[in-house]
Computed example of a mutant assay.
Amino acid sequence: MSLKKYLKTMKDDEDNLDIVSPCFKISPDVQLKEVPTNGEEYLLKVIKERKNIAAVTKCNKDYSKFAENQSQYVHEFPRLSVPEKLKPTIEWQNMQVADFSETRMYISRLLSKRKIWKNNINIIEIKPTCVIEWKQFFSTHIPTLSCVLGLQHALLDQGLEVLTDIISRTKPGNTIEHKTGQWVYAFLACTQLPLLSDTTSILRNLARKCAEIRFRLNPDEENAITAATPLNIFICLVARYFRQYDLAD
């Protein structure tokens, strides 16, 4: 057979293909059994079961509002604007990211030498869902490395979530307390990468709460820039270091 005739025959076969045609033919003598004993009986059972299933399955949920790779819809409020007087420059944000990166590298080097200093850390035990214990812990402890590194990684997300709740209670016109800010920074510095989905949600919520507090500051007050600084730092780190770029200033 010539190449030209072969290609024509192949094209004719492709035109006659039927994607729903059976791949295997089963002898009419094969009987349907509850427990197949050979390949043909198994295929017959599969074919019979397939007839009870619709050819096209429709989703009964409205996914039109979902993000492309999102399996569950999470409502997020629109991003609040920032007064120009309180908006950090790109250069300033880059400096914060660089300093934060150095801090995380220092912690990483410490963790690699855990055998040397493991006896000097404070092992912290807290019920993950007990908010009262968390708040007492934050008020009675100082965020030193010996304290933060004593927390299991499973507790970091819960602690950061409680800190976000504490921040959300800041009165309009005020900023977060200095010690609370130190705890947030310490927890961010110990947050593991790559981020889990729950951790991402917590970080985004933290940044949005900070943006909300900043939005309620009076930019004309003398200490407005100072009050906005810790808020700008946390928004910057979540957006630019942890790559939630849509929240960036």
Rank of each mutant, 00 (worst) to 15 (best):
S168Y: 06
N60T: 13
A98D: 08
L44P: 01
N122D: 14
I166A: 04
I53A: 05
I167W: 03
I235D: 00
L111D: 11
L44Q: 08
F66I: 05
S21K: 12
E41A: 02
R50I: 08
P22F: 03
D246C: 01
R50N: 14
R214T: 01
Y73T: 08
L195F: 04
A186G: 04
M105R: 09
N69R: 03
D157Q: 10
A239H: 02
W183F: 13
Y245Q: 13
E221Q: 12
Q182M: 15
V82T: 05
S27R: 01
Y42R: 08
S112A: 15
F66D: 06
H75P: 03
I176Q: 00
E212K: 13
S139E: 15
N223Q: 13
F137P: 04
R216A: 12
G181C: 02
I213R: 01
Q152Y: 05
V56C: 12
E102A: 07
T103W: 05
W183D: 06
L160P: 11
N120V: 11
R204V: 03
E68M: 08
S112T: 11
E41N: 05
C147W: 13
I90S: 00
P78Y: 02
M10K: 11
T229P: 01
I235A: 00
W92Q: 09
H178R: 15
V56R: 14
E40Y: 06
C210S: 05
R109N: 09
A239I: 00
L3A: 14
A227T: 07
N120Q: 13
V20M: 07
N16W: 09
I53C: 05
T200Q: 15
L17S: 07
K5L: 12
E76F: 06
C190I: 11
V238F: 06
F242E: 02
I213Q: 00
E212V: 06
D165I: 13
R216C: 08
L111N: 08
L188E: 09
R240N: 07
S27D: 11
Y241M: 00
Y185G: 02
E14W: 14
L145V: 12
T164K: 04
I123S: 11
I132C: 06
K171G: 03
S21G: 10
I26A: 03
T57H: 09
Y73D: 02
P143W: 12
M1N: 05
I132D: 13
I126L: 14
L188D: 09
T140H: 10
D99Q: 15
R214S: 08
